[in-house]
Design a protein around this nucleic acid. Structure first.
Lengths: 338, 338
DNA sequence: GTAAGTTGCGCACACGTTTGCGCACTGTGT
DNA sequence: ACACAGTGCGCAAACGTGTGCGCAACTTAC
């Protein structure tokens, strides 16, 4: 016994405490609290009242040890320089609160999930894990596979395997292209990312595909490094182009790059949308600010996370469920930027 | 036994598994793994090698149940509309990773910590909790008090009680005032927050105090609602003032408000810093963007969280340690905005 | 009256780790 | 020969919850 209560501080009530108070067996208390039909209503009500009165709260650690269930879900977030991940955090937290779950931060930042990180999933016996950005190293993937930790990628599709819920990136890219065409734009550039994610690739292909249908193609491609600064740097370069060589519309593969792009362009004398149209992708709240007023595809984040939680829960029930990739349509928000 | 391995999937190794493999008692394995001096080096090395070979990882839930120690720390974050909290998350996660801890998201968003939220701290037997924004409801405070969960406020000081680590908000406010004075500004306004936190109050008092020393006072105060939109709205109002009634410098109590303020001013025809100087507080990375180039006080976030973790750890060792409030000096970053 | 079914609850063990206590064995000094 | 201390390890209980099984009492049916 390591936790001694030095002062008279009475210990936190447990099932055993309650069982003694009620004059029943501990198992009866457990079943009463969990609503087992085998316990008579009278006994259950009495125990429930007792539990409430004593301020009983279950010890999740003990429950996990015994039954394996602890509403604990791992969460892996992408790098800090894209606010989209913070948005995922807040949305996931809100939903977890509703569902009675808790989120354990497994990793936050760039880089793949290493073996040591994956260990945490086992150490804490999480019931599942939501991965918003990084890929798993093959080691880490094997560990999760072997120990049957249900994983769901949010906003990414893994190469070989795994569940995923993602926005219709290809369709969204296409919709943005058609939107720009409908507003009279005729030459196009893309601000892309330096890493190769399914997300970025699909958006770009969707955009280019829709242009191709109109007999057009992407004139220029820049590396936006997936963040504001990369978009900004691209904007500065673009502003230095002679007018004749500059596309009149740009698709930044994420809102945060689009914001940097707009600032880079404007600080170098170009007007958005008068001289150059800019569209993004994600639907960040920040992109709605009046100085940006960015046309974008809003990812249905609430629905995406709801589906993600459902997928994990379903795979907890039945580990043999096949892997599944869900794609949800985003919504075009046409604003002033392009 | 609830978790049956339907397929031949061999179970994850435990201390008992290892003890059988090594032909020793489980207690010997535990002590060997924990480096207890009572176990001979030879035995320990053998067990360590065995553990590594079998891919053993400890079950934290079981450890918690037995010893009460699980490097689990609760984290409470403020609302989404201030990126400062996301910064705290990333910094805390990075440090926790170094220290071998894990963060459990207890709450993220506005509003105080309610009783049900505090219950989570008990349910999961966290070893401590970092609270970055919200206050505890008195109920929640009592629960943590009774169960001796070490709490540390980061960036806030609680009214009645509790440990806290915070930036020198008063000193920072004063430094900003002196900075603006040294750049020749002579009339001042403040964009304040609608909620009354120690942080906001101290910053404002520091600023006003330094002005008073120079025989000046704050001309105008606006409510910035603690977020970008609030700052923006204040900027629009300020821009509508007749030139003669408009201060030539503004202190927004947080960077995110300062950013909104600058945009609100500029979109309504005022130039920053030519017409109006703007300074903020926090040191957000976003405020360093060229379009803002905001003069601000950078909070020493890395140090603040390091101290916070230390304080929690110390109070885990010795629950009788007195409450403590640590104040760390911030750093003035003089940029172009004011 | 007995047999069968139902309802309500307790017994006892399992989950994986930690830890107080104690035992056996070895070496040292008298 | 004895006592003594030190080293290295095992025994067994504890942490709090969940659950398979079984037992008693009570009902219903014949």
């Amino acid at each position: 016994m390591s936790r001694s209560d030095e002062e008279g501080g009475t210990r936190r009530p447990t099932v055993v405490t309650l069982s003694k108070l009620a004059g029943v067996a501990p198992s009866t208390v457990t079943r009463a609290l969990r609503g087992d039909s085998r316990i008579s209503k009278k006994t259950r009500d009495r125990i429930l009242a007792l539990a409430k009165g004593a301020g009983y709260t279950p010890n999740i650690m003990a429950r996990t040890l015994s039954s394996g269930r602890n509403g604990l879900y791992g969460l892996v977030l992408g790098p800090q320089d894209n606010p989209f991940y913070a948005q995922i955090l807040y949305e996931a937290t809100a939903q977890a609160e509703d569902l009675g779950f808790r989120l354990l931060i497994i990793h936050a930042g760039p880089g793949p999930i290493e073996e040591s990180t994956a260990q945490a999933l086992l150490n804490y016996q999480v019931n599942g894990c939501l991965i918003s950005s990084a890929m798993l190293s093959s080691q880490a993937g094997r560990i999760c596979e072997e120990n049957r930790v249900p994983l769901v990628m949010v906003n990414r599709v893994a190469y070989q395997q795994g569940c995923a819920v993602t926005c219709d990136n290809r369709g969204g890219g296409a919709e943005l292209a058609r939107h720009l065409l409908s507003r009279g734009r005729r030459s196009f550039g893309i601000i892309r990312t330096s890493n190769f994610s399914s997300t970025a690739r699909d958006r770009e292909e969707g955009f280019a595909g829709a242009l191709a249908e109109a007999g057009l193609e992407v004139m220029l491609r820049y590396d936006g490094k997936s963040n504001y600064d990369g978009g900004f740097a691209a904007g500065e370069e673009i502003a230095r182009l002679p007018d004749s060589q500059r596309p009149d519309a740009f698709f930044a593969l994420s809102d945060i790059m689009a914001m940097g792009l707009m600032d880079g362009l404007r600080l170098n004398g170009l007007r958005v949308p008068e001289d150059v149209a800019v569209v993004g992708f994600d639907g960040l709240p920040q992109a709605a600010r009046r100085i940006y007023d960015l046309t974008t595809i809003e990812q249905p984040l609430t629905l995406m996370l709801r589906r993600a939680f459902q997928m994990v829960e379903a795979r907890m029930e039945d580990r043999s469920l096949p892997e599944e990739v869900v794609t949800l349509r985003g919504r075009l928000i046409a604003r002033a930027s392009g």
